[in-house]
Simulated scan of single mutants.
Amino acid sequence: MKSAYRSISAVAALSAMIVGAPVAQAEWQPDGPVSIVVPWSAGGSTDTVTRVLAGELTEALGQNVVIINQPGASGSVGTRSVWDADHDGMMMAAGAAADLGAYPVLGMLDATLSDWRLYLHVANPGLISVPADSDIEDFGQLLEALQTSDEPLTVATAGLTSAGAIAMGAIEGAAEINYRQIVYEGGNPAVIATVAGETDFTSQTATEQVDMIRAERLRPLAVIASSPLELDGYGTVPPVTDWLADVQSANNYFGVWIPADAPQEVFDTMDAIWENSIMDSEAMKAFAAERGALFDPSYGDAAQEAAMPMLSINAWQQYDGGTAENSPEDFGIPRP
């Protein structure tokens, strides 16, 4: 009996270790589902990557992590709902750090970038693409049309501070162009609109466009970067700097964030998950490779530093263009 009892006890102990493994890496153990608010519509760059991340966090935390889509006001509506909720780690926000840090500059949210603890995973470059049946064959032809057309060319974006709007601001900073943004509730609707012929082109992220590119419904012309983009199933997309050397670009980091005054045990747990699980996540790596994104996770101070170059570009674009009511300098955002 003692031998049998010891065997049963050993199995039970081993089972407890296996079951407890996901939450054993730090102290915080949520007592219910954790919510991540995606402040954009379903199917866009924030939504798709956050759903992959939610699966990884569910396994690591031992609790379900659910996605709530809450679009509006360039992502500030959903982000504000997290800021206004209890700062206990049970509700996180997702998105692009360049948007998050620009909200106080735009007067949309008082919380600055340093008021959040950042957990970054991928960077998503902006991509200039036209419908597959467009007469425009390369970015040089599009640039000529933007500079010479009497009527403004139309570009589909997700609106103020979105990757598409930042991309167009970067081009506008390097060349005099004539265009008009047609704004949609997210990157995915913007891309679909361009495929449908509602606009002349789109400038949303590669992640949002890659399916339509592989299906030969969109033709990519240039990536908003200083180096080419390799897209699986398509090939190489040249950098916009091949035509406009002075275009400002930086990695557009995406991730999740928690108010910085949440309990320390929440951050200890999330830091451990990022270090031990997300940094080497095969699911996240596969997503990035398949979607034309850069897998480059970081958290804490390193994430704040990584996010600043694109935030600087975005915030100063808005301020110099007269869109923002507050100077980025007031929030410690240096001019790029």
Rank of each mutant, 00 (worst) to 15 (best):
A165T: 14
L127I: 03
D261F: 04
A222G: 10
P239L: 05
M270L: 15
E176H: 01
I166Q: 01
A12P: 00
A306W: 00
L57E: 02
A175W: 11
S227P: 01
G292T: 10
S162H: 10
G32R: 00
A206V: 13
P336R: 12
R180W: 01
S227L: 05
S45D: 01
D86S: 15
S281L: 00
V223L: 07
L57P: 05
D296H: 04
N314Y: 09
D47P: 07
A293Q: 13
T161E: 06
G55V: 12
M308T: 05
A42P: 10
V52M: 05
G169S: 00
Q264L: 06
E329Y: 03
E137P: 04
D200L: 07
L160K: 05
P228W: 06
V130M: 03
L109M: 15
S3G: 04
D320G: 03
L57Q: 08
A26K: 08
T46K: 10
F254S: 02
S3M: 11
S76L: 04
N252F: 14
R6T: 09
A158W: 04
I128P: 01
L160G: 01
P131K: 09
T205S: 02
A73H: 12
T48Y: 00
Q264N: 03
D261C: 07
L244K: 10
R51N: 13
L143K: 08
D242L: 08
W243H: 04
P39W: 10
Q141G: 14
N326H: 15
G187L: 08
T161N: 06
A250S: 15
Y184K: 13
G62F: 14
V82Y: 13
P125N: 01
